[in-house]
Structures are given as structure tokens and as C-alpha cells.
């Protein structure tokens, strides 16, 4: 019989182990989400990332080794982003009729997130490249990382802030909008995609297909807005 250590060495050489672990951890998170009666704070992404983080720590596995397997899941983000064209197309009449509210919400919400982030960070003593890393965090990761580089932020810090913003947004959006009394799924979806990018959009699809379609278009528009507006705002402030 092969010793356990040898099996472990064999498995850690193959991408299959961490690929399987990623899907299993997410299945556990999804099961917990459904079992809770779809409670917003039982977020499947958050559960899966905490579970896997604990497993990596316990087994002394580096993130690089983990990502060798998990990259196959990560890669699908590209095709999934392209796939957002389908709900966009299905809801095209809705979307064309709301061009004006979308544009207004995009600019107002985008500037608010950017300025409050920089303002609170500055007030709490953040300066320089750490402070600038906050500016593009509401955009989808590839854009946020590129913008962070361009304005003198720290790209890896921005990448982490994008994920944390997405998780936080996905967790608080439903109770927040219920408290604000906004029931329109076009407004709720759009604001979620514009503020919490991909993870927010994933949450919107859990709630309602129209909300998901509007979140998808908001994520795309906010990518464009962040790329254009962040260098201008940062240049004007600093």
C-alpha cells in the first residue's frame, strides 16, 4: 500500500486536487446558503473562500500551488462576462428605456464611492500609494488593477479591495434596499453591479433575472467610467 505521504505528494503535483476542492467548498457554501433560507449574509463565495483559506493554512499550501488548480475555474470568468450579453439582449427594450437613469446613477454612484473612499481613508491617516489603491475598487478587477497601476496605487491591494467590496456589497445590498424602500429590480440590480462589480452581479442573478441583467450592464459601464474618471479625479485632488 502506498504511504499517505506519497499520495499527498502525488496529489499536490496535480491541478485536480485544488480544482476539486474549489468546487466542493463552493457546493458547501451554496448548500449553507439554501439551508439558511437564502439569507443574504450566508454568502457562498465568502464561505468557500474562508473554508479554502483555512485548508491552505492547515496544510501549509501556498496560494500559487492552489491557483495552479483553481485557475481552471478562474478562467471561466472571461466567457461568463461575454455571456452577460444574453440577459442584456433579452432585456434590451427595458434597457433602452432606462438609458437616462442608468447614466445618472452611474456617474453619481461612481463619484460618490470614489470620493467617500478617498475621504475616509485620508481622514484615517492613509496616504500615498495605499490611499490611491482605494480609488478604483468599485470596478471589475481587470480594470481596477490597470487603473491602480496607472494612478500610482498598489495593484495587488486594489485586487483584494475589489473582492472585499464585492462580498460586502453582496451581503448588505438586500437589507439596505429593503430599508430604503426601493423595490424596482432595475434600480436595485443596476446600483449593485455599479457598486459591487462581479460578486454583486452574481448576487443580483440569485435574486432576480432582471436585476442580474441590469447589474451586468452596470458592471460593464462602470468599468468604462472608472477607467476614464479615476485619473481625472485623482489628478484634480492630489
Amino acid at each position: 500500500m502506498t504511504p499517505v505521504v506519497d499520495i499527498w505528494v502525488y496529489l499536490t503535483d496535480e491541478p485536480l486536487l485544488w480544482l476539486t476542492a474549489t468546487v466542493l467548498a463552493y457546493a458547501v457554501g451554496d448548500r449553507a446558503f439554501r439551508a439558511s433560507g437564502r439569507k443574504t449574509y450566508v454568502n457562498p463565495v465568502l464561505i468557500a473562500m474562508l473554508l479554502l483559506g483555512a485548508v491552505l493554512l492547515a496544510t501549509g499550501t501556498t496560494y500559487e500551488v492552489y491557483f495552479d488548480g483553481a485557475q481552471f475555474v478562474h478562467f471561466l470568468l472571461g466567457p461568463a462576462t461575454v455571456a452577460l450579453a444574453v440577459p442584456l439582449y433579452t432585456n434590451r427594450s427595458h434597457i433602452l428605456r432606462t438609458a437616462l437613469p442608468m447614466l445618472a446613477a452611474l456617474v453619481a454612484g461612481g463619484l460618490t464611492a470614489m470620493l467617500t473612499g478617498l475621504g475616509v481613508g485620508w481622514a484615517l491617516g492613509l496616504r500615498g500609494e495605499v490611499l490611491l489603491s482605494l480609488a478604483p475598487k468599485s470596478a471589475t478587477s481587470p480594470i481596477a488593477i490597470g487603473v491602480a497601476e496607472a494612478i500610482g496605487g498598489i495593484p495587488s491591494l486594489t485586487a483584494a479591495l475589489v473582492i472585499l467590496t464585492g462580498i460586502l456589497g453582496a451581503v448588505i445590498v438586500t437589507p439596505l434596499y429593503d430599508a430604503l424602500g426601493v423595490r424596482d429590480y432595475r434600480a436595485r440590480g443596476f446600483a449593485t453591479g455599479a457598486s459591487a462589480s462581479g460578486i454583486g452581479t452574481a448576487r443580483a442573478f440569485q435574486v432576480d433575472p432582471v436585476a442580474g441583467a441590469f447589474a451586468g450592464i452596470a458592471m460593464g459601464l462602470n468599468a468604462l467610467f472608472t477607467a476614464l474618471a479615476t485619473p481625472l479625479v485623482v489628478g484634480w485632488l492630489f
Binding site: T22, A25, P44, V45, M49, G53, Q71, A160, I163, G212
Partner: peptide, 17 residues
């Protein structure tokens, strides 16, 4: 799109790590 959340797990683990 039904499993869009799953696709963010690898990047999320990066944040924890």
C-alpha cells in the same frame, strides 16, 4: 451565469491568503 459566484472563489481565496 447561474454559477457566476463560483468563479470568484479562486480570487477570493487569494484575498484570504
Amino acid at each position: 451565469l447561474a454559477h457566476l459566484s463560483l468563479l470568484f472563489v479562486p480570487a477570493g481565496v487569494g484575498v484570504v491568503a
